[in-house]
Design a protein around this nucleic acid. Structure first.
Length: 566
RNA sequence: GCCCCCGUAGCUCAGCGGAUAGAGUGUCGGCCUCCGGAGCCGAAGGCGCAGGUUCGAUUCCUGCCGGGGGUACCA
């Protein structure tokens, strides 16, 4: 007997068996069967699953699709998991799961508990999701929050899909921007100590740099102050980066994101490290040439629109070189089977050449997925707010968390597909905080908990409940909605677009609310979970328990809390 | 110029080759002697334009028109 996890493939086998039997019986000409083509009808009136195989087969079989459907349906073996399949124009074969099968899924959910809806898609494979990875030259802004919500949920979904997943933050603690950051910090630091200096032209004008300088001064006094005209002490830059990374890490923890690795860009340049290894591979392949004093990767020979500099004329490696080394490390040294980089859309010009270079140093470009999320346009009551980091004016992720909370912010970010630009009205987000859809979902979870608690006060528990008593349409609809989580996880883990999660969560919460209020609609108190009928109550409590498990699972995948009370 | 993303309900967005295009919010109309109304039920309202592929296109392809982003020896 299949369960929620494998019902789809089970039905596919039934369809294919039916098609083969139809051919064997002479009801269909001997044509190639392209697979069951099973999908979920939008309208539940058409059943739980539908096969469009007849529509695809019609031409080759030289019969109208509806006749093909009839021929196949006739030969689909009788089975306890489904009702007899029906045929619908223009040529669908519709399947409705048997009530007994649907009811049995309540027990399935309770049995597997927190791992409900896990699938085997990525079993035995290692996946890495790298996300946020903002330069540690300033606090995280709202746009970084979108990347954090997307990357973390994606990692969770991949985990549910069977992958061994690592979350990684790539810390840009080397390179040009780091130098500008250090010089700005030193300028601010000198200003605090009474020196009349300007911050560098390409530096970071934000007010937070003054606060950072103040922190340094508080801790170290004037220890980093050099005589006028002398260069700044390198240790100050390192300290500044460390403080910033700590700040970023704290923000992400407030946001509910935990990384497995914080990968230092600087470490790429260790002796015999990824940088040396990756560049030597390119050199051996004859893909590095010197021109105009710089070292170029001849990427145009691999189909890129131009060559790209990997080592500047002053001898320092470019960001591109770092990324080549970094991705060599991901694939060759660490052996990930699937690598996902979550980037802001402003980096999109970099995608193609990164894939090309990754392939050139021995990685698998097809296993590298760069997920671009479009920028977040902030406004306050309709007036645009710039988030350009270097102008110094941006809204911090911390402020957003203060305003609307981590759960609401995450839910909101996930709701939009990464590829769509999103408007975020900060005033509205604050105002809406009580009727934000996030509360709708969490409220459903809290009520599920409170029903179980209320029942327990009356000595009622789900134990021993007989799920075959669950026959009301709202009960069966709720179970069917729970079962759909398996599909959702598969879609997210293969499309890498996590917006399905919040949409599903709302749908599941709605199915619960409808179930929970059914007695009001029908004006029939015997439809309540807790009624005089003890056996009925136990059965419904069993359903409530399973629904709670399902809803908690989606919330967890989205990185949100599942409150027992609100 | 070239490249990428997006034009779906008043607004913010799902839907990614199938049967009557969905949700939230907003508007209108119902439902509390209720296990928490932060709820439920119902109504009105939409695929930028033009071709093409297909049995079938909101979905894939081409062009056009809008909006945004990229096109550094920045990251």
């Amino acid at each position: 007997m299949p369960d929620t996890r494998d019902i789809r493939s089970y039905l596919e086998q039934l369809v294919e068996a039916g098609a083969r039997a139809a051919v064997a019986a002479g009801d269909l000409p001997d044509v190639a069967i392209p697979g069951a083509s099973l999908e979920r009808p939008k309208d539940t009136a058409n059943g739980d699953f539908a096969s469009t195989l007849p529509l695809r087969l019609a031409r080759a079989a030289m019969k109208p699709p509806i006749e093909v459907a009839g021929a196949i349906a006739k030969h689909i073996p009788a089975d306890t998991t489904i009702e007899p399949p029906t045929v619908a124009p223009p040529g669908f074969i519709n399947f409705r799961l048997s009530t007994a099968f649907v009811q049995a899924q309540v027990e399935h959910v309770i049995r597997v508990g927190p791992s409900f809806a896990d699938i085997a898609l990525g079993r035995g494979k290692k996946a890495q999701v790298e996300f946020v990875s903002a330069n540690p030259t300033g606090p995280l802004h709202v746009g970084n929050g979108r990347g954090a919500a997307i990357g973390d949920a994606l990692a969770s979904a991949l985990g549910a899909a069977g992958y061994t997943v690592e979350r990684e933050y790539y810390v840009n603690d080397a390179g040009t921007q780091t130098d500008f950051f250090a010089e700005t910090l030193y300028a601010r630091y000198q200003q605090l100590l009474g020196r009349d200096v300007d911050i560098p032209k390409d530096g970071y004008p934000g007010e937070y740099m003054v606060e950072l300088a103040q922190m340094v001064k508080d801790e170290a006094g004037d220890r980093f102050l050099m005589p006028e005209g002398e260069p700044m002490p390198p240790a100050l830059g390192t300290l500044g980066i460390d403080l910033m990374v700590r700040n970023i890490r704290a923000t992400l923890e407030r946001f509910g994101v935990r990384y497995d690795h914080w990968y230092s860009e600087k470490s790429l340049y260790d002796p015999e490290g990824p940088y040396e290894r990756a560049l030597s591979i390119l050199r051996e392949k004859g893909m590095l040439v010197e021109r105009e004093g710089a070292l170029w990767f001849t990427s145009s020979e691999l189909g890129e629109d131009k060559d790209n500099v990997v080592v500047r004329s002053d001898g320092r490696p470019t960001y591109y070189a770092s990324d080549i080394a970094y991705h060599w490390d991901k694939f060759t040294r660490r052996g990930f089977d699937l690598v996902i980089d979550v980037w802001g859309a402003d980096h999109h010009g970099h995608v193609s050449r990164l894939k090309t270079a990754t392939g050139a140093v021995g990685g698998d470009p097809n296993a590298l997925h760069v997920l671009l999320y479009q920028l977040v346009f902030l406004n306050r009551g309709g007036e645009a707010v710039k988030i350009a980091k270097r102008s110094g004016e941006f809204v911090k992720l911390d402020e957003l968390i203060d305003d609307v909370g981590a759960d609401a912010a995450r839910f909101f970010f996930l709701l939009r597909s990464p590829g769509a630009q999103m408007d975020f009205d900060l005033d509205l987000a604050k105002k809406q905080s009580s009727d934000n859809p996030v509360f709708y979902v969490q409220y459903a979870h809290a009520r599920l908990c409170s029903i179980i608690e209320r029942a327990a006060e009356q000595g009622l528990t789900p134990e021993g409940g007989d799920v075959s008593k669950l026959t009301h349409p709202s009960e069966l609809a709720l179970i069917r909605e729970m079962m759909r989580l398996t599909d959702v996880i598969e879609v997210v883990a293969t499309s890498f677009e996590p917006q399905q999660l919040p949409h599903y969560a709302m749908s599941l919460a709605n199915a619960f609310h409808a179930f929970n209020d059914a007695f009001k609609q029908a004006n029939d108190s015997s439809l309540k979970v807790i009624t005089e009928d003890v056996e009925m109550s136990r059965a419904r409590l069993r359903l409530v328990q399973a629904a709670r498990i399902s809803l908690a699972r989606v919330l967890d995948l989205m990185g949100m809390t599942a409150p027992e009370k609100m």
